[in-house]
Design a protein around this nucleic acid. Structure first.
Length: 423
RNA sequence: GGAGGCGUCGCCUAGUCCGGUCUAUGGCGCCCGCCUGCUAAGCGGGUUGAGGGCUACAACCCUCUCGCGAGUUCAAAUCUCGCCGCCUCCGCCA
């Protein structure tokens, strides 16, 4: 049974949910949900009692003689008609409830800026300065093409819009960034893990991607599978349905996987180059920790810090944004985007997104743990990008380009490129 | 793609052929208590999960839960079908 909030919480504190619905701009009738929940509970109770009755009758049948059995069979047939009618109604109403429950938002952080969307996000930190060039800098598409580092036209002939093929040093640089990100996380005790991109629907519902993000997701109907837009889907899915021991927490994963997004909602936007593509590589930070506000806050900061460290190491200017309630999405408690400077866009663009989901996602995926006192609780989950390429690659080559069309390699990446200082 | 085997309450396991006191057996582990200079052993009890009644998140009671779902039946761990997963072999293949 999926549930984003405990039904009890919704039942007993509908105002909390209503408030979340309002600030997140969600179309959901909480009163109707509460009423439906009561109805489902009533029907369930009715079914439970009838099942008990049926059980007793069945036992009586076993002890009865043949004449009595005939009578009991007849009675039971009549009884079953009513029981199955109630059962059917319960099933229908429970399914309706389920649909609504999947739309119940997580309660956002009380200090998150309230607003309808991205416009209300607040920049809370700026680090580094965008580079100034004493020559006319190129945008990444021109630079990549001049250096023979990418195929766009040819790739699009093969695979359609937003397709690309990296070539030569661009491939090596991409590999270097991803390797560096993975290694950075490993030094911080994250377990590197490669996860499937091909996932079942249940995994997408469990993460919270579905039902809302359905049209954003590639579907493979012949196999009842989907292409995940992020490694988070499989990372949550790995432990879905489990009851972990508290001693196993926190789980720290550095997940690596190809990611696929249809970009239906942004058709026509960023169609040039590598900023927004359908297929990309990502190293993802993912944490499962105990259900404690201070603990998940701690990990939120840790995930943010890893991403910031990476950008510092890559010598890129960035800003950290406190995302508004309308921008953060259905399940999130808190979201901080990190926007990195893109010279050709003359602006900061999202390269990382750090989210705390509290137990919202864990409830959906039924990811629980046994606490030291023996009680079973839903864990908290968090995630953040570590490095997503090729978008991050764009920032790297645009920011570090030189007048002679070479690109300076940040020192931390040189060990992954045979020590080369420029490409 | 083909053939076969298997999935029981943390782990292992009895039960499945011949449906009903299975409110699922036993062991290990774990928890509580007793005993005991300490520890171990021994003894007694507890130990799947979900929802509900009641409501103090205690006790007690009810329903569901033997991979998941549906079917047959008065009655399903047990019979039938579908799905999921694991194992073995054959074929094909990075």
């Amino acid at each position: 049974m999926f549930a984003m909030l405990d039904v009890r919480t919704i039942r007993e504190h509908p105002d909390l949910v209503k408030h979340a619905v309002e600030v997140k701009g969600i179309d959901l009738d909480v009163d109707a949900l509460v009423a439906l929940e009561a109805e489902v509970r009533r029907l369930r109770h009715e079914v439970d009692n009838a099942m008990g009755e049926r059980k007793r009758r069945s036992k009586e049948f076993g002890r009865a003689d043949e004449a009595t059995r005939e009578r009991l069979r007849a009675e039971q047939a009549e009884f079953d008609v009513r029981l199955s009618a109630t059962k059917d109604e319960h099933a229908v109403r429970a399914a309706e409830l389920q649909d609504l429950m999947l739309q119940v938002p997580g309660i956002p952080w009380d200090q998150a800026p309230v607003g309808a969307g991205e416009a209300e996000n607040v920049v809370i930190k700026k680090v580094g300065t965008p580079p100034t060039f004493d020559f006319e800098p190129l945008d990444h598409v021109t630079l990549l093409e001049e250096r023979g580092w990418a195929e766009f036209a040819r790739a699009r002939n093969v695979s359609g819009e937003r397709a690309y093929a990296l070539r030569g040093d661009a491939v090596l640089l991409e590999r270097a960034v991803l390797s560096y990100a993975l290694d950075l996380l490993v030094t911080r005790s994250f377990t590197p893990i490669s996860v499937p991109s091909l996932v079942r629907e249940a995994a997408l519902v469990g993460t919270g991607m579905f039902p809302k993000g359905r049209e954003e997701t590639y579907e493979l109907p012949a196999d009842d599978l989907f292409l995940a837009g992020t490694g988070e889907v499989a990372l949550v899915g790995l432990h879905a349905g489990e009851i972990l021991d508290k001693a196993q927490l926190p789980l720290l994963y550095a997940g690596i996987s190809p990611c696929f997004r249809r970009e239906i909602g942004s058709a026509g936007r960023d169609v040039r180059g590598l900023v927004r593509v359908h297929q990309f590589e990502k190293v993802e930070q993912f944490v499962v920790c105990e259900a404690d506000d201070a603990e998940s806050e701690k990990w939120h900061q840790a995930l943010l810090d890893c991403a910031e460290q990476l950008l510092l190491d890559l010598d890129l200017a960035y800003e950290v944004v406190e995302c508004s309630t309308g921008d953060m999405g259905l399940g999130k408690f808190r979201m901080n985007d990190i926007n990195t400077w893109f010279p050709s866009l003359e602006s900061f663009r999202e390269t990382h997104s750090c989210s705390t989901l509290h137990d919202w996602q864990a409830r959906r995926a039924s990811l629980r743990y046994r606490d030291t006192d023996g009680t079973i609780k839903h864990a908290h989950t968090l995630n953040n990008t570590a490095a997503a390429t090729p978008r991050l690659l764009v920032a790297l080559i645009e920011n570090h380009q030189n007048a002679d069309r070479t690109v300076t390699v940040p020192p931390v990446l040189r060990p992954y490129l045979q020590g080369r200082e420029v490409l």
